[in-house]
Nucleic acid binder design. Structure first.
Lengths: 334, 334
DNA sequence: ATGAAAGCGCTAACAC
DNA sequence: GTGTTAGCGCTTTCAT
């Protein structure tokens, strides 16, 4: 193994000089820098991560805690994780992958061991059990999602309440009177996952404000459950012409079922999806949608965490305003 | 910060004793163990990861390199990543997430810095540029996928060649004569990704053996491209009644398109998918499929890597035999 | 602009 | 069964 001492010897300088060339925390003469650089190159030196972490009390690793339950908005999770990883590298950070099922013990373990310098938590519930632990040990952390009490925490999320309202407004603008929200699976609401609950709240409020009759049904996302969800909505309100779907797994099934039931999108039925853009534009017809800006959320979470690591206190919630893109599934009602 | 010395002082023993209680590498009296354990508990001690890595030359971290290109068989990647992470924890290992775009430099960086003790590489191409680096620096590593030359490497993958043949056999058994493989996007083949190429080889060989006429078309997975792919297949071979789909993104579109073209699955057309089980059983109709055992691949990759970390040389390729599950999309031709 | 040296918190001989 | 101690490879004062 090549050590810093090896590099120093070869470059004819002291160990500390090599260290300072690497960190840039001291002014180094051009010549020395060149010598050191070429010694590093020649020897194929890589600083030892453990030694560096021990001496500097910084691992340059951040932990990302992702939901374990597979099947839950997988594309969104994946895109966030990729955005976090690539952005982290731009800050010289690596990403440690933790699953949500490590729970509070995971947060304690990571913070306590110094394995990571900070955490990014996904799948945040309204009353998340990890939050008391964050207050207790107070590590640098960013939540992707918005809990009920975000006091003292740094959060970033799409403004799902505004998203729900925006969807209702769009349907109202098109003249729809009876609208329905096809939501995530029951389990998601039971766990009081923030985004689902907030979307529903916003949708109901928006619908009420615009005088729409709104119904809501959770949906597991399978073909059968989507069929059940849809038929119950149409039983209860046969005149429903506007649909908002928040469960991307249900999208293909919903479109097929509407077709089979003789409803034509967008001529007599409008569908608005809440999902990543690629999902919306790869459907047929291409769906009007509010984009879940997964990449941006991941990137900004890292930026916020990196700021904390350099001493900035950025507690507070950032809610990304929703943007609705009209595609080929929006039709107006005469 | 609580250190091992703090624990030792409180328990009235030496530092090494605490260390040995933790590692179990020495026999410790019941009483001492109890004292140490309760001191650890009382102080909320967590061993410092950096110090431990430095002293033991083991980080207890493994690196997982995943494809960056989003949209590529995302559910499979995600399921593998989750299986890797949970299995790793059972071995006391943490997982560092790297993206494929760090390439060979990433492999060098991780191995050189001692950040991770070993690597699991996904998205392995037939002639992968990371392989020479693996041979050069020879870190513990497992490839998920099968390159052309796997000499000296530990690989695990589904036996995609047998998978292709199995699909052809299933269609032949049902009496189909004209069959088609709807594959991954062109980019996947251009990059010589192993699994796609091997499936095609196996499918062609199997079809030839059984006297089937087989066509193959890549497919981007969008609705439009699936429509194009399907219509070109039917132009070329209007009598095609058996389809194998390897691109899970194309599945909903394919089913819709077949329906629109008046073909009824499984009455006059059979569809076999190569995808994770949940995808197959959530489609309508539920699809006959060869399961991509993502969870098993992730778990076994970690097991193989953990074995290497404890000194076992397990170079060689493990090909998981494919299993075909008949569901509601298989129909026989009279 | 550079060096010398004291740790960082742990592991693993080496003692007894 | 337990203690003593010498590092692991780096960062960072303190000197000059």
């Amino acid at each position: 193994m090549v050590t810093l001492a090896d590099v120093a010897r070869r470059a004819g300088v002291s160990a500390s000089t090599v260290s300072y060339v690497l960190s840039g925390k001291r002014t180094i003469s051009e010549e020395t820098r060149r010598n050191v650089r070429s010694a590093i190159e020649a020897l194929g030196y890589h600083p030892n991560a453990g030694a560096r972490a021990l001496a500097s009390r910084r691992s340059n690793i951040i932990a990302l805690m992702v939901p374990l339950r597979s099947g839950m908005y997988v594309p969104v999770i994946m895109e966030i994780a990729m955005a976090v990883t690539t952005t982290a590298r731009e800050y010289g950070l690596d990403v440690l992958l933790l699953t949500r099922d490590e729970g509070t013990a995971g947060v304690r373990r990571i913070a306590g061991s110094g394995l990571a310098d900070g955490l990014i938590l996904m799948d945040v519930e309204l009353d998340d059990d990890r939050i008391p632990v964050l207050h207790e040990i107070d590590p640098p952390a960013v939540l992707i999602g918005l809990p009920t009490d975000a006091t003292g925490l740094t959060c970033i999320d799409l403004d799902f309440e505004a998203t729900g309202a925006l969807c209702a407004d769009h349907l109202a603008d098109l003249g729809h009177r009876d609208v329905a929200l096809i939501g995530e699976s029951k389990g998601v609401y039971r766990r009081h996952t923030g985004f689902a609950a907030r979307t529903l709240t916003g949708f109901r409020a928006g619908a009420a404000r615009r005088g729409l009759r709104a119904v809501y049904r959770p949906c597991e996302g399978t073909y059968e459950s989507t069929a059940g969800t849809l038929s119950r909505i149409l039983e209860e309100r046969p005149g429903t012409t506007g649909f908002v779907v928040q469960n991307e797994a249900a999208i293909p099934a919903l479109l097929t079922l509407l077709r089979l039931s003789g409803r034509v999108v967008p001529e007599d039925t409008t569908v608005v999806a809440i999902c990543p853009d690629p999902v919306a534009s790869q459907s047929s017809p291409r769906l009007t949608s509010v984009s879940v800006p997964a990449h941006e959320m991941g990137r900004r979470a890292v930026e916020l965490l990196a700021a904390q690591l350099s001493g900035v206190d950025n507690a507070g919630s950032t809610l990304i305003p929703p943007a609705l893109t009209v595609r080929d599934s929006s039709g107006s009602v005469r």
